[in-house]
Design a protein around this nucleic acid. Sequence first.
DNA 1: GGGATATAGTTACTTAAGTAACTAATTTTA
DNA 2: TAAAATTAGTTACTTAAGTAACTATATCCC
Lengths: 141, 141
Amino acid sequence: MTHLDPNFFHQQLQFTRTFTKKLNEQLKKAGIFHSQWLIVFYLKQFETATLVEISNYLNVEKPTITRTVHRLEEQELIKKIPSNDKRERRIMLTEKGIKVFEEAKQVVDEFERKLLEDLSSQDLNATENTIKHLIERLQEG
Amino acid sequence: MTHLDPNFFHQQLQFTRTFTKKLNEQLKKAGIFHSQWLIVFYLKQFETATLVEISNYLNVEKPTITRTVHRLEEQELIKKIPSNDKRERRIMLTEKGIKVFEEAKQVVDEFERKLLEDLSSQDLNATENTIKHLIERLQEG
DNA sequence: GGGATATAGTTACTTAAGTAACTAATTTTA
DNA sequence: TAAAATTAGTTACTTAAGTAACTATATCCC
């Protein structure tokens, strides 16, 4: 029962703050922000989506998704597609959106590759398990 | 060379988002937010501090600290103390601030204890090492 | 001593995410 | 089938963090 560094959680927060900061610097090349990347990435995988689908997948509240999608629309990276359910707003990537995805993917892949370069897969797996466990714990309570 | 789940970083971000969200719910009992807690915690440890000291310790930009300290001042949890250097704003906890620290500490300790309850210390240590390594990597580049 | 440089903090503006309360459309159910 | 409940999305407001540009003070050093 070793004693845990009291900074354990503080470090987690610091990491994610710095991570998004540095990744946003890189993503300027592709003309989008990290928050937009997450949605563009989702749309490339699943072709179309509603805001609620994105919200559930990313585990981010709906108003946040509304805003980010709105900015993607202004940049003409996504477009609306017809839907039977008049409440929902079903969207997909435009051609410009797909191009931006390709550019951003290279940036993100390279950024993440460099970060993980010389970490052992044991440590990475342990970390992944720990974080998964912590997320589950948070969602229970 | 196992392939890493592409959601590795996404999970990190999701964890910290949910963590601060849930902790903020708990901290309502003490009447402060997580961002304020970090500063109150620092002041309890080090007695006095300037905004730059706090900024460096928490690795958060100065304008963010200015704002959070301003709110702590409004709630009368901190007070200004004299300094020879007229540029700096040296602060310390008020008595009310110390009381809030005590309340918040119980909330935070219990919250973190429950989260870590049944995680092995191996996994925790591996996670801590990984995060430390990742932070260093981010700060190099 | 005085100009150049560095440091502490603030202001204005932006991105990101959250809550609460709402509208409009759809589905359930009595 | 009509009222009740649920679902999708938006609006308004708040917390949190960032950048750029600024003021005021202190330090360096020629």
